[in-house]
Amino acid sequence: MALKTNVRFPQRGGMPEGDPNNSHDLLTQEELEKRGILLTSLDKLFRWGTGWSLWPLQFGLACCAIEMICTTQSRFDMSRFGYEVFRNSPRQADVMIVAGTITEKMRPAVELLYHQMPEPKWVIAMGSCAISGGPFVDSYSVVAGADKVVPVDVYVPGCPPRPEALIDGMLQLKAKLLHPERQQVVRDVK
């Protein structure tokens, strides 16, 4: 039932150059869109749809988890973007928000959970501990960063990051989905 599409980042070369002396009779996709005709590939449609429906895995490890909960509460409300459906089972989640310190004891669990999530999946490293070990980087039992265990897509700095920062992180992930050709997502993206 699943349709196989290859959604990997970064991928194929840059966007096609706009040719100012376009002497062909064919129009590029952008020119068509300007005329109000939308052509899209299934890949683009899927990425657009996924961007509006990133279901996080309920995976709070430490202090950042509390700010993650605050993000879903009434004041900051992540559900406005459609992301409030926190799934308990990794089988139904898209995004793993690593919120907190990963210790050596917890490392196999993190890896197992990541593998249990179905493709396509992403990881957001929230907080200093998940980015690089944070204040505990030289501890004997702490893994210095989530990217030592799972591939990370978005890093959200802070200790803990404010809820607005986490929402920004999720929106950066959405922007990354919509523009896979960019290596680094620029700030002002709709």
């Binding site: 699943a2 349709l3 899927f46 961007g51 509006w52 559900s79 406005r80 973007f81 459609g82 396509p120």
Partner: peptide, 26 residues
């Protein structure tokens, strides 16, 4: 809190995004 309110008028098309995403999952 407002609930989903971004996609579509006042957020009524969020299920479309959900459906598209669920179709493409492994």
């Amino acid at each position: 809190r407002p609930g989903p309110n971004r996609l579509g008028p006042n957020g009524w098309f969020h299920t479309v995004g959900d459906a598209i995403k669920l179709v493409m999952k492994e």
